[in-house]
Amino acid sequence: MTSLAAVSSYLPPTIPVEQLREPLGLTDQQVRRFTRLYGLDRICQAPAQSEAELLTAAAEKLEALAGQEDRVRYVVRAKGLRTTAPYPVSPLQQVREALGLHRATVFSVADHGCATGLLAVDAAGTLLAADGDPDALALVLAGDKTFTPFSQWVEDVSIMGEGVSAVLVGAGGDRDRVLGYHARIHGREDGVIDLDPEGARDAKRIYQDAMAEVVLGALDRAGLGIADLDLVLPHNVNRVSWTVAAAHLGIPRDRIFLENIARTGHCFCADPFINYQSARELGLLRPGDRYLMTSAGLGQSFAAMVLEH
Results as ranks from 00 to 15, higher is better:
H266P: 00
L179M: 13
R71Y: 03
G288C: 11
A48E: 15
F34W: 11
A203E: 06
R73N: 06
P47H: 09
S165H: 05
E162S: 06
S108F: 02
R263S: 01
N275M: 01
A64F: 02
R33K: 10
L101A: 07
S9Y: 01
P134T: 13
L229Q: 09
V164L: 03
L37V: 12
S301D: 08
C269D: 14
Y291A: 04
Q300P: 00
D135Y: 10
A303S: 15
D190M: 05
V244R: 13
I256Q: 01
R177I: 12
R263P: 01
D133P: 11
S3P: 04
M293H: 02
E189Q: 10
A48I: 00
A59Y: 07
P149H: 09
H266L: 00
S3H: 04
V214F: 03
M293N: 02
P13S: 13
V167M: 05
A270L: 04
G67I: 08
M1F: 05
G223S: 08
T105E: 14
N260F: 00
L62C: 09
T83S: 14
R263E: 09
V31D: 03
L141H: 08
P272D: 03
S50D: 07
D122V: 00
P16R: 07
E22R: 13
G125I: 02
G39S: 11
L40K: 01
G143M: 08
A218Y: 04
A200G: 15
A212V: 04
A130L: 14
G223Y: 10
K79R: 15
G265E: 01
L249R: 09
L137D: 05
V240N: 10
T243R: 11
T83Q: 14
R239H: 07
L92H: 07
K79H: 14
V237Q: 08
R32V: 12
H186L: 13
I15M: 02
C114P: 03
L101E: 04
T148S: 15
F273I: 03
A59S: 07
M160K: 10
S151H: 14
P88G: 13
V157I: 15
S50L: 05
S90Y: 09
V232I: 12
G217T: 09
A303F: 10
E281Y: 00
G113K: 10
C114K: 02
R221K: 15
L249E: 06
R255V: 01
I274T: 10
V106C: 15
A171C: 12
R82Y: 11
V7N: 05
I226E: 06
G172P: 02
H112G: 00
R205V: 00
A46S: 14
E308K: 03
R71G: 07
P134S: 12
